[in-house]
């Protein structure tokens, strides 16, 4: 079977097709994010309830409850003392971001490939694997940022932010949450069969990280053989950086730099790794 062709119109048609690819190539990640945000509207009420209820309950519980029992203030390496709630608040803020990350980077990833394979639908449209990953991350950010801001407002209301630089904790917590979220995503994107890995992540990674990342007590009070959990945990780095800003915790500058570089490197590695995995899985 042969078909003749008119060269002029074929070239116009080719130009039109190339032009139709420009917007998806440029804004594809944002279109995916838009999709995610629309999907989140389905459980918006839950998001608002947990976004407000969780900081209130934690800060009230710890500030009015536990802090009244912990009479002793917490000191840094230089001997500066700070109240318990001020010590614990930046870590709780980062934990709130990590909690969002643990939700948004697990089930939606598994769902997109397995339970409700929308990623294949996106990819059948002009969206690439990399854009799907970027869009998912933007979606996580969009949910995480307001959660962190609301949490911070509660921290202010409870008087747990002595320094005005504490406002930077919003960025630190978001940054921490994304770092953990991306690392989780790098793993969840590889799951082809659900064997309860999500529950394992929650129980054996998120919860221990929450408990052993210097959240409720300085890492140095832990036995040395448990301290490594904190060192490799972005949450510890995020909590410590948050403390530097919120009440001026004193630490060597190289440690502060490490608090930035480590989660950054982890996040970047995980981001690229997820993109590679997703692209490979879509190209069946």
């Amino acid at each position: 079977m042969t078909f003749s062709t008119s060269t002029g119109s074929a070239s116009d048609e080719r130009d039109a097709i190339i032009a139709a690819g420009v917007k998806p190539r440029r804004y594809g990640s944002w279109y995916v994010a838009e999709h995610r945000i629309r999907a989140m509207r389905a459980y918006l009420q839950t998001l608002i309830a947990t976004g407000i209820g969780s900081p209130f309950l934690y800060l009230f519980g710890l500030g009015v409850g536990l802090a009244s029992l912990v009479q002793q203030s917490v000191g840094d390496a230089q001997g500066h003392q700070v109240g318990y709630l001020a010590f614990v608040a930046p870590a709780l803020l980062a934990s709130a971001a990590v909690t969002v990350a643990a939700e948004e980077c697990t089930y939606p990833m598994l769902m997109g490939f397995k339970w409700n394979p929308i990623f294949f639908g996106m990819n059948a449209a002009p969206i690439s694997g990399n854009q799907i990953v970027n869009g998912m991350i933007i979606g996580v950010f969009v949910r995480m940022f307001p959660t962190v801001v609301v949490y911070y407002v509660f921290m202010l209301l409870f008087g747990s932010v002595p320094s005005s630089l504490g406002i930077l904790d919003i960025l630190v917590a978001t940054f921490t949450g994304l770092s953990v979220g991306l690392a989780i995503m790098a793993y969840t994107s590889t799951i082809t069969e659900d064997k309860g890995q999500m529950a394992i992540i929650q129980r054996f990674i998120i919860v221990p990280m929450f408990l052993f990342s210097g959240t409720f007590f300085p890492l140095s009070t832990l036995p040395i053989f448990l301290q490594w959990i904190g060192w490799i945990s972005p949450l510890w780095h995020g909590a410590e950086l948050g403390r530097v800003f919120s009440y001026g915790e004193v630490e060597p500058i190289w440690v502060t730099v490490l608090h930035v570089l480590y989660p950054l490197a982890l996040g970047l590695w995980a981001w690229k790794s997820t993109q590679r995995t997703v692209t490979k899985r879509l190209n069946r």
Binding site: I17, A20, N116, P117, G121, A124, A125, P126, S128
Partner: peptide, 18 residues
């Protein structure tokens, strides 16, 4: 790929509606 896909409509074997 993206340019071609911008001109296609695809009905997959397995529904992948959201």
């Amino acid at each position: 790929g993206p340019e071609i896909r911008s001109q296609l409509g695809v009905v997959p074997q397995q529904d992948n509606l959201d």
